[in-house]
């Protein structure tokens, strides 16, 4: 608008060219003093002023690391993508992949919310594990992958429990079946089998209920959920009995 010229935003001043090594070293010193924000500014200047300098690759990696350290996850992910695009076969790719995956992982929401961040973390860790299985980052990625998978199973459970409590038993059963079929290694598998027992009982399908409880008992005999299933069936005068080769039996590990 008209007034902009008078007291408008400051004009971009001409930046003095600082040698690449000085910028990079300055950024490292800043990071030692926990001044990550100023370090990032120096590294970005390095990237801009010396795009062809051999230090640029290391500088880009440091930008990813610095953003990750101060919790600016979206910026860290963007910087990681820039690094991966420019140096697809760089020696630091596993570490950058790990930083990117963990940037997603750190933002994972609880299971009552959208789990898109878990899926992003899974995809990134999957690339890391498939392409660099021997790298030390892959080991940690595998653990975090399990947790992220567990979140997806947790989301199904939370929706299933909502439908169960709301009286829509068939919708609930289908959600718990999804967990039993797709996420057998998740920590929710025991509860999923228990909830199937509940759902089938509520519908009156007693054979299906006893089968579900039987599989739960067979695979997880000492589980708290099996004890509850046993009691639940006991109250109805039933006992977990494996119904002649139920599909659930196919899960005998």
């Amino acid at each position: 608008c008209a007034g902009g010229g008078l007291f408008g935003p400051p004009k971009v001043k001409e930046e003095p060219i600082v040698p690449a090594a000085a910028l990079y070293q300055g950024a490292l010193d800043d990071m030692d003093r926990q001044y990550y924000q100023t370090a990032i500014q120096k590294l970005e200047k390095l990237e801009r002023q010396h795009p062809r300098d051999p230090l640029a690759e290391q500088g880009k990696l440091m930008i990813v690391y610095a953003n990750y350290r101060i919790g600016k996850f979206d910026e860290a992910i963007l910087a990681a993508d820039r690094y991966l695009a420019l140096y697809p076969s760089g020696k630091e790719v596993p570490y950058v992949l790990w930083l990117k995956g963990t940037a997603y992982f750190a933002q994972i929401k609880d299971i009552t919310r959208d789990q898109q961040l878990s899926r992003d973390a899974i995809d990134t860790y999957q690339i890391l594990i498939n392409n660099y299985p021997k790298s030390e980052h892959a080991i940690d990625a595998k653990e975090k992958l399990l947790v992220a998978y567990d979140q997806l199973a947790g989301k199904e459970m939370s929706v299933g429990r909502y439908y169960l409590g709301n009286g829509q038993y068939t919708a609930a059963i289908n959600r718990f079946r999804e967990v039993v079929e797709k996420w057998q290694t998740s920590t929710h598998i025991e509860e999923a089998l228990y909830r199937l027992t509940e759902g089938y009982l509520l519908l009156g399908l007693t054979t299906e209920a006893t089968s579900a409880a039987a599989v739960l008992g067979h695979n997880y005999p000492s589980s708290e959920w099996y004890r509850r299933a046993f009691e639940l069936l006991g109250k109805q005068g039933l006992a977990p009995a494996l119904n002649s080769g139920s599909w659930l039996a196919a899960h005998r590990s």
Binding site: K109, T112, R113, D114, V159, Y162, N166
Partner: peptide, 18 residues
């Protein structure tokens, strides 16, 4: 829904899966 819980939205639909 990064902040709103799933059931707060799901319960506004007067029908369920199935």
């Amino acid at each position: 829904n990064v902040k709103t819980r799933d059931f707060v939205i799901r319960r506004e639909l007067e029908f369920a899966e199935g």
